[in-house]
Amino acid sequence: MKQPAALNLNEVTIRLRGTGAALVENLELSISPGTVTTLMGPSGSGKSTLLAFCAGFLDRSAFAASGAVCIGEDRIDGLPAERRRLGLLFQDALLFPHLSVGSNLLFGLPRSAARSRFERRQIIEDALAQAGLAGYADRDPDTLSGGQRARVALLRTLLAEPRALLLDEPFSKLDAALRAEIRTFLFEHVRARSLPTLLVTHDAADAEAAGGALVTS
């Protein structure tokens, strides 16, 4: 495994194509491995647009963007989304509804991690067991509880071996008790794997729990 590297945004500007209004202007961010930087702001302030830009899904017909996204020394904003290796989590778990829980995890597991069916299966079984979901591999994702789904979604993202995490209000649809549990679960993994993480939220408690830098837009 490579040395953990920081996620850096240099002079990122995103404008609406229609009006030319800037959603993000000359944003400079440096997120060290294992830390969470929180971006707070009201909805419609362009937080999700920034994540879409970093991850490679910006709707180029609606937005014009400039600036650099780097992981360590690697500049990634020119790469197609599937080669950026950024873990992406939304409010919804977005488990693929036609695949079992296990297949969802296998979907993101790179072939470099394991080639044989048996080994791959072993990896996801272990991951599920560590997350308190032993024996869930063959389940229909739609039969899981909200908290279980959130955990599977995070596992799926981590198994894909991302170099950084982008979180788009990942806790906003969970109830208060569950929110604390999933937050802890998530941030433990972030630290354990030394992932630089950018969290977008409008909940101050999320920012507090993340414990890192806070940027308001």
Partner: peptide, 13 residues
Amino acid sequence: RLPATAAALGADP
């Protein structure tokens, strides 16, 4: 967001 998630997991178009 479903295809976006899949791409973020490393799947090409």
